[in-house]
Amino acid sequence: MKTLNVGLIGFGLSGRYFHAPFLSVNPRFKLKTVVERSKNEAQDFDPAIGNARSVEEMLSDPEIDLVFICTPNDTHFSYAMDALENGKHVVIEKPFANTESEAKQLFEVAERNGLVATAYQNRRWDSDFLTIQKLIRENKLGKIVEYESRYDRFRPEVLANTWKEKQADGSGNVYNLGPHLLDQAFVLFGDPQTVTATISTVREGGDVDDYFDIRLGYDDKFVIVKSSLMVYENSLRYAIHGTKGTFIKRGLDAQEETLRRDVLPNTENWGAEPEDRWGTLYSEEDTGIVCSLNGDYMAFYDSIYDAIVDGKELAVKPAEILRTTRVIDLAFESNERQTTISY
């Protein structure tokens, strides 16, 4: 079995708590090098990990096969382009790129060089989203007529110590949480016909958007994705209504909080969601609590390996990533013009 040598650019929340744990327990990968300009936190996680003090140093290593880009959003495009031009496959944290144009450029270079490039859309493997797909597949809800997906927080004070709260390309809540919510909606329902968005800054002293309401137009259903940093009771995650019933889901997938406790994803019953977060199905045929399927972010990494080593189709495909970046572009245009934009 071929082992892919991996380099991480950045070792913050994403690198440390999402990627490193999965890469460290999956025998198909070896986390070889992490770029940290001054710290040595990767070695605290695993002393066997090498350190690079610059992106250039890591990209010059011919043994590195695959690079994960886990840095602020305004650096994604340039780092990804450098990695691809140095012959490395790339996984880019969301957003994959800050515009559809940038995303197209990256895919053109990847295709020209015979490389794999994809976005880290791990929320496809959240426990609740896997459960929703199962309910729809089993026709428990009938034909979906309204789908609302929310990812809210209560953060009334603007944080001074994070790039996510400062003006820069790709900053703000639309770029932070929008790719997750939009990607999930597209997995379920495909391309929208129209995009209508309200994007705003609701907190006093805020420099970036912290509220969005994006409505995706389809012939036969209403699809709404929303997020705000000013929702005190922020447990509602999904409200889905169909011709046969309704599914209401509160609470978030447990994998992130488990990873933050330094629990590795090879533990027994990984991805199990606490029972108090399970959703409720309301219908004439079957009303009651629905046991959530286990979440499984490892499936994303296995897809990357299969695409690079065996030439299989990616789980998160370029066309799907381009669709998400396009809709984000259209959402900002819709908000600016205060009108509905055709997809």
Rank of each mutant, 00 (worst) to 15 (best):
D44H: 04
D46N: 13
P47G: 00
P47A: 00
N51T: 13
A52F: 03
A52S: 14
R53E: 03
S54M: 02
V55Q: 05
V55Y: 09
E56Y: 08
E56K: 14
M58E: 09
L59A: 07
L59V: 03
S60C: 11
S60V: 01
S60P: 01
S60A: 15
S60R: 15
D61T: 00
D61F: 01
P62K: 13
P62T: 02
E63W: 08
I64T: 12
D65K: 14
L66F: 10
L66A: 12
L66S: 10
L66E: 14
L66H: 10
L66N: 13
F68W: 10
F68T: 01
F68K: 02
I69P: 04
I69G: 00
C70F: 11
T71M: 04
T71P: 01
T71K: 00
P72R: 12
P72Q: 09
N73V: 08
N73F: 11
N73G: 14
D74P: 05
D74Q: 15
T75Q: 13
H76G: 07
F77H: 13
M81P: 02
M81E: 13
A83S: 14
L84E: 09
E85V: 05
E85Q: 12
G87E: 04
G87R: 05
G87T: 03
G87Q: 03
K88A: 00
H89K: 06
V90M: 08
V90A: 10
V90T: 07
V90L: 04
V90Y: 05
V91S: 07
E93Y: 02
E93I: 09
E93H: 00
K94D: 11
F96N: 03
N98W: 09
T99S: 15
T99M: 09
T99L: 05
E102Y: 14
A103M: 13
K104Y: 12
K104R: 15
F107C: 06
V109A: 15
A110R: 08
E111C: 06
R112K: 15
R112L: 07
R112E: 04
N113L: 08
L115I: 07
L115Q: 11
V116S: 08
V116R: 13
T118H: 04
T118Y: 08
